[in-house]
Simulated scan of single mutants.
Amino acid sequence: MKKVLSMMLVLAFVVSSFALTVTMVSDTGGLGDKSFNDGTWAGVLRAKDELKANVKVLISKEQTDYVTNLSNAAKESDVVIAVGFMMTSALFDVAPQFPRTKFIGIDIAPSQGTTIPSNVALYLFKEQESAFLVGYLSASMTKTGKLGFIGGIEIPPVKRFEFGYRAGIKAYNEIHNKNVEAILGYAGGFGDVAKGKQMAMAQFAQGADIIFHAAGATGNGAFDAAKEKGLSFYGLDANATLKDIIDKYYEKGRGYFAVGVDSDQDYLAPGFGLASAMKRVDTAAFLGIKSSRSARSFKSGVHTLGLKENGVDISPMKYTKGMVSNSTFAELAYLSSLIKQGQVNVPDSEDGLASFDVTSVKFPF
């Protein structure tokens, strides 16, 4: 018995001694953005729980912090998580200097002709696919015929959200012979909640009744605006219950909504957060860390996750599901299946959007 116990203690020591040390380097949105950074951190915490990894985070307050934070993280970590497209140059500068450290880039894509170091795995997403679903949903729900979009900075992943959203609206228009319009705006940053609210209020004033944001913490202001505008429209105070809100929605026949991004943000304004276009950065972070446990399982290069790979999705709509018709949910499910099968290819560019056509889609119900 003593020998068995000794062996178990030795084994436990060996396992703990090989626990991965993981450091996440945030972008300038930092933790608490309720979006991209928080989602990635959730994946890191999952690795802590399931893989017994030792984890920490370094917050980048400015873009000039990226190189320093990545370098400091690499000096003391087995795995470094680099978060966000804006960190691309810094990651490709730092990673070759630390060949024994694995680097996981979230939403980081190499520029054309760039060789990806053997210790770097990049995870990209088909943001346009989840955005397509919330665009179609929003088009089905609008009572004004106008929808809003607020982007942070015009970088590739944000533009893919925009194109997917517009494609969803276009698909709804073609299938249902409607003319829903989109009002587009960019905030120029990801960390200004007040500006996000100001932009949302301006789009509501222009006639939009639903606004999708892809703007990090800036976009959280859209939820503040939707709640403020909605409560005023319903004649309710800040203490109104979800039941009060839903009852007023049916009484008035319309409302004001925000649509979240990256993670399930519906809880930010229950009853006013229609849905969220989820990008499973948590899944990507966890998979990247898990693969880093051995040279055999770690695969450098680019890994792209879409609906088919469960890398993007629409939120469960915990608070607003009862406001949406069963026919709309059925249409979304069918369109989602077509996307997964490759029969509908959601565009990720302006040219692709211009030629996007779903007039051949016929629902089997």
Rank of each mutant, 00 (worst) to 15 (best):
K146Y: 04
V158Y: 07
L184T: 15
F223A: 01
L184C: 08
G164N: 06
G151N: 02
N179D: 15
I169E: 00
A222G: 13
I155D: 14
G216H: 07
F223H: 05
A167R: 08
A187H: 02
E154L: 05
I150A: 00
N173K: 12
D224L: 15
K170A: 10
G216L: 10
N220Y: 00
A200H: 14
G151W: 02
A167T: 07
M201F: 13
G196S: 09
A222R: 02
A205R: 08
I183T: 07
Q206H: 00
H176N: 15
A202H: 05
R166D: 10
A208R: 02
K146D: 04
D209H: 09
G145E: 11
I183A: 07
D209T: 09
G216T: 06
Q203T: 11
Y186K: 07
G185P: 00
I211C: 13
I210K: 04
I183L: 15
I183N: 08
A182K: 00
F223P: 04
A222K: 03
A215K: 12
G164D: 03
A215D: 09
G164L: 03
Y165S: 07
P157H: 12
A200D: 07
A208P: 03
G152C: 10
T218M: 11
D224T: 03
I211L: 13
F190A: 00
A187V: 05
N173E: 10
G151K: 11
G219Q: 08
D224V: 01
G148W: 03
T218V: 01
A187G: 04
K170G: 07
F204K: 09
R166F: 01
D224M: 06
G221H: 03
M201R: 11
G164K: 03
L184F: 09
A208H: 01
G221R: 09
L184V: 14
G145V: 01
I155V: 15
I175V: 14
K197W: 02
